[in-house]
Design a protein around this nucleic acid. Structure first.
Length: 452
RNA sequence: GCGCAGGUGGCAGAGUGGUCAAUUGCAUCAGACUGUAAAUCUGACGCCUUCGGGCUACGGAGGUUCGAAUCCUCCCCUGCGCA
């Protein structure tokens, strides 16, 4: 259940309370800390409370690969991670379709620079794109594995220069109508919408995500359109699997019989895609928004400069009363943009990954603890910060030394601070919205936090 | 004193006639990181440069050679063994 407590008048920002079917609670806007393998790197489970974590996102693909047959007897993420009261969501594996596939081939992340000029505006397809769409319906970069019917490689090898072929060989994913084939160390494994749903039921998160295809920022309009149609077809399959009669379930966790009423234990979110194209994003937003999901997520690729527009288009067709999650984003500026566009929850590796790499976030901007200016610095990590790291009296110089002496604790101290910082920041955002001060808060935050 | 092994860029350690300003690792410095193949990855790392190149360099001094970190002679130093 999602109840909105306050809506901002100057933007689409809102603040509310998300209560999961299991009775766990998230105050929104909130930030999901990434715990891909059912653990937050460099943060012991018992310290999550100290870091003010209220939401965790784990990963279906990676846990599936890691657990194998143990999945059948998996006790559920809350038990496994020993965080009975924390809300957990699982990503469906749709992102790995990109990160292990075209992400590798194109050498980009989801917020990549946009190289293809015909893609740059994000407004509408160029005449060339339209022509391509007419003359090659369905014939985009899709690859079929040799064992599947109608196998073909596209583009054919002959069309590729050597470097392009090398890059293509980095792609470990073959996408088909049914799902995606992943090349792993143990051979090939297939993951599609149906299986992703079944795995997510066994993992037992509070919130699960539809299996989608996350596209690359380098994909052109033609490909984005085709991938979007596929993601939409998969969305319906996910709903059907999620809502199948209990008798057909292979796993009992999905349904709870409480007070004579059969109740779903997990919330299912649909995912909006469409690359950076306005018409595709709006189409997707309306299509997904009209399906009976419990909430919605915005996925896929963004150009850094187009991000806010893309978020706006993606939200445009979603029902007001249901929660919205922005997948894999972000940085402070992205959060401000997302909240202002009506996003309720976020998740991103930024706080945790950057912490391990020395990137420290503070209310005065970000700094790199491994870099020279911090050598011998007596300055606290962040003055006035109440996190356990700062409360411990850690200085920038101490952290510098720990990183340089490869002390494993450096990553822990930094991770603790960053998670605490992001969660604190989110609570400040909530406070601002609930007090009707979001506009002022946002203005100040942009000036102060973004100077880096 | 004799025998053996060695002395290479901040360190470790390749190279044993030209493709060597010298593989590689570490350290250092800089940059990146957005649903985590990431406690990771890139780049720089003798000096100068108009970015074409120029200069000085493999313990020291000579020598052989068109050409030497690489071969020869002497010297200096280090480690191990024997006296």
């Amino acid at each position: 259940m999602f109840s909105i407590l306050k809506k901002d008048t100057g933007s689409h920002a809102r603040s509310g309370t998300l209560t999961t079917p299991g009775g766990r609670i998230v105050e929104t806007p909130a930030y999901a800390i990434v715990g891909t393998h059912a653990e937050v790197r460099c943060l012991p489970p018992e310290r999550m409370k100290d870091a003010k974590v209220q939401l965790i996102i784990a990963n279906t693909y990676h846990l599936w690969q890691k657990l194998g047959e143990k999945l059948e007897t998996f006790p559920g993420l809350h038990v496994e991670m020993n965080i009975p009261n924390t809300v957990i969501m699982t990503d469906s594996g749709g992102f790995q379709v990109f990160s292990l596939g075209f992400g590798r081939e194109h050498g980009v992340g989801k917020v990549g620079g946009i190289r293809n000029s015909s893609v740059g505006t994000g407004r509408s397809p160029s005449p060339a794109d339209r022509a391509a769409l007419r003359s090659h319906p369905g014939e985009s970069n899709i690859r079929r594995i040799p064992s599947s019917p109608g196998f073909r490689e596209f583009p054919p090898d002959d069309f590729l220069i050597h470097d392009e072929r090398n890059m293509r060989d980095k792609n470990l994913v073959r996408i088909t109508e049914e799902g995606a084939y992943f090349m792993t160390d143990n051979g090939e494994s297939f993951l599609g919408p149906k299986l992703s749903m079944e795995i997510q039921e066994k993992l037992g998160a509070d919130i699960i995500l539809a299996f989608d295809e996350c596209t690359s920022p380098e994909h052109d309009y033609v490909y984005q359109k085709e991938a979007l149609a596929r993601t939409h077809r998969w969305a319906k399959i996910c709903i059907d699997v999620h809502n199948r009669p209990k008798e057909l379930s292979t796993h009992s966790r999905q349904w709870v019989d409480g007070s004579g009423e059969r109740k779903k234990q997990q919330m299912l979110y649909g995912i909006v895609q469409g690359g950076i194209f306005e018409d595709l994003r709006k189409e997707s937003s309306h299509y997904i928004g009209n399906l009976p999901f419990d909430g919605f997520a915005i996925g896929g690729s963004f150009g850094e400069t187009q991000m806010r527009d893309v978020i706006g288009w993606s939200v445009s067709g979603l029902p007001e009363e249901k929660p919205r999650h922005l997948l894999g984003i972000g940085k402070i500026e992205d959060i401000l943009n997302g909240v202002a566009e009506g996003v309720d929850t976020f998740d991103c590796v930024i706080p945790t990954r950057e912490a391990r790499h020395g990137g420290i976030w503070t209310h005065e901007g970000r700094f790199d603890a491994k870099k020279n200016p911090n050598k011998n610095s007596k300055e606290p990590i962040e003055a006035g910060c109440a996190c356990p790291t700062c409360a411990h009296g850690m200085t920038r110089g101490m952290l510098f030394n720990m990183f340089h002496s490869k002390d494993i604790k450096a990553g822990e101290y930094a991770t603790m601070h960053n998670i605490f910082f992001f969660n604190t920041f989110m609570s400040e955002v909530r406070g601002a919205i609930r007090n009707g001060m979001f506009e002022e808060f946002e203005k100040k935050a942009r000036v102060k936090l973004l100077k880096q």
